[in-house]
């Protein structure tokens, strides 16, 4: 394991609908960053009392120092897989943060500065299993996290899944990663652009 890069509270929210596997995604992502990379990670979740449907979200905080508050307040990365989630949580995104949406479902993002891939469509058509949407998103998120090593992420993903569904999810992960690399460009460049964009927007109102 390489020594972890210094990061101070990198906050990720994975949001969408119940049934999209967001809490599983949070667990897989958190496990890969904590056990695979050696970061401090907290993963929390919020869901309704319904068995299915409704909104669902998982929060992941990554840091190279011990984490006190386990939930998120200022998001560095918001993943929104439903229009409702996108609209509710967009306001929590930092000025320099990045929004990643599922363009199959989110037709009107609340900003024109965002990244998107048609995850639902890709899962259905290219993988043949809509339930792989979460591992596909994990592939794309892996590309966006400058401190995540794709090899370590994939290994951790495979280690955490039962044999029956391992192969199809590994395929989805690879596709998500590849499409993100092709469409979004280099991760360093994306964050530099977000930083630039944030610097030009209006000042935060300090409460």
């Amino acid at each position: 394991m390489k020594a972890p890069q210094p990061i101070d509270r990198f906050e990720i929210r994975l949001s969408g609908l119940g049934g999209q596997g967001l809490i599983t995604l949070g667990r897989l992502l958190g496990s890969a960053l904590a056990l695979g990379h050696g970061y401090y990670v907290t993963q929390t979740q919020s869901y309704g009392p319904e068995a299915r449907g409704g909104s669902s979200r998982a929060d992941v905080v990554v840091s190279s120092r011990p984490i006190s508050y386990p939930k998120t307040e200022n998001l560095d990365l918001l993943v929104a897989l439903s229009p409702e989630a996108c609209n509710s949580y967009y306001r929590l995104l930092k000025r320099t943060g990045i929004l990643l949406v599922d363009t199959t479902l989110v037709k009107h993002a609340p900003t024109n500065v965002y990244l998107g891939l048609p995850f639902t469509q890709m899962a259905k058509e290219q993988i043949g299993n809509p339930m792989t949407i979460n591992t596909m998103v994990m592939g794309a998120v892996t590309h966006l996290l400058p401190f995540a090593d794709p090899k370590v992420m994939r290994k951790s993903l495979e280690a955490n899944l039962p044999a029956k569904i391992r192969e199809v999810n590994a395929k989805a992960f690879a596709l998500g990663l590849k499409q993100a690399q092709r469409n979004f460009g280099d991760a360093g460049g994306i964050w530099a652009a977000a930083e630039e964009n944030g610097a030009h927007s209006e000042d935060d109102i300090i409460v």
Partner: peptide
Amino acid sequence: EVTAHTREK
């Protein structure tokens, strides 16, 4: 609930 449902290393 928060402590019980937080995942950490």
